[in-house]
Amino acid sequence: MKLPLIIIMCFSLRAVAQQPYTASFIAKLGTDTVIVETYNMMHDHLYGKAFLRYPEDRIGVFNFHFHPDGSIQHYSMSYMKPDSSYVTSSGTEGMICENDTCTWFAGWAGLESEYVNKRAVRHIDFIGGWTPTLSLVEWNCMRLMHSGKQNLPITLVNDYIGTRDVSLTKGNNDTLIFGGPFLEYAKIKATNEGRIMSYDGIGTPWNYIVSKHAPIDVDEAAKRMSKTHKIGIPSPQAQVHFSFGKDTIRLRYGRPFKRGRVIFGGIVPYDSIWRTGANDPTEIDLPFDIQFGQTIVPKGKYSIYSIPRKGAWTLIFNTDLQQWPTDPNRSKDLALIPMKWRIPRQQTDQFTIDIEVLNDGGVIKFTWDQTEAFAPFRIVKR
Rank of each mutant, 00 (worst) to 15 (best):
C10G: 02
R14K: 09
A17G: 02
K28M: 07
L29S: 08
T31R: 09
D32W: 01
T33Y: 02
M41I: 14
M42R: 09
H43L: 08
F51A: 03
V61A: 15
F62Q: 04
F64D: 05
H65G: 10
G70L: 05
S78T: 15
M80I: 10
Y86V: 15
V87W: 04
V87H: 13
S89T: 01
M95H: 09
M95N: 06
C97M: 13
C97P: 04
F105G: 05
A106R: 10
A109L: 13
E112K: 11
S113E: 14
Y115H: 12
Y115I: 12
N117F: 03
K118L: 07
I124C: 03
G128P: 00
T133H: 08
T133S: 14
L134T: 06
S135T: 05
V137W: 07
N140P: 03
S147P: 00
G148F: 14
Y160H: 12
G162Q: 14
G162D: 12
N173L: 11
D174G: 11
G179L: 01
P181S: 10
P181H: 04
I188L: 10
A190N: 07
T191P: 00
R195F: 08
M197S: 03
M197G: 09
D200I: 06
I202W: 07
G203E: 03
S211Y: 10
D219F: 07
E220V: 14
E220K: 15
A222P: 00
K223D: 04
K223Q: 08
K223V: 11
H229A: 15
F242S: 05
S243T: 15
T248H: 00
I249G: 06
Y253R: 06
Y253E: 11
K258M: 04
G260S: 00
G260I: 09
R261A: 06
I263H: 01
G266R: 02
S272T: 15
E283Y: 01
E283G: 09
D285A: 11
D285L: 11
P287E: 04
F288L: 00
D289P: 02
Q291V: 12
G293A: 01
Q294V: 04
T295L: 05
I296Y: 01
K299W: 04
G300T: 10
K301H: 15
Y302I: 05
Y305F: 15
K310G: 01
F317H: 04
L321N: 03
Q323W: 07
T326I: 10
D327Q: 12
D327A: 15
D333K: 03
P338A: 03
I343D: 04
Q347T: 11
T348S: 08
D349M: 06
T352V: 02
D354M: 09
D354K: 14
V357M: 02
D360Y: 15
G361V: 08
V363Y: 04
T367N: 01
D369C: 13
P376M: 09
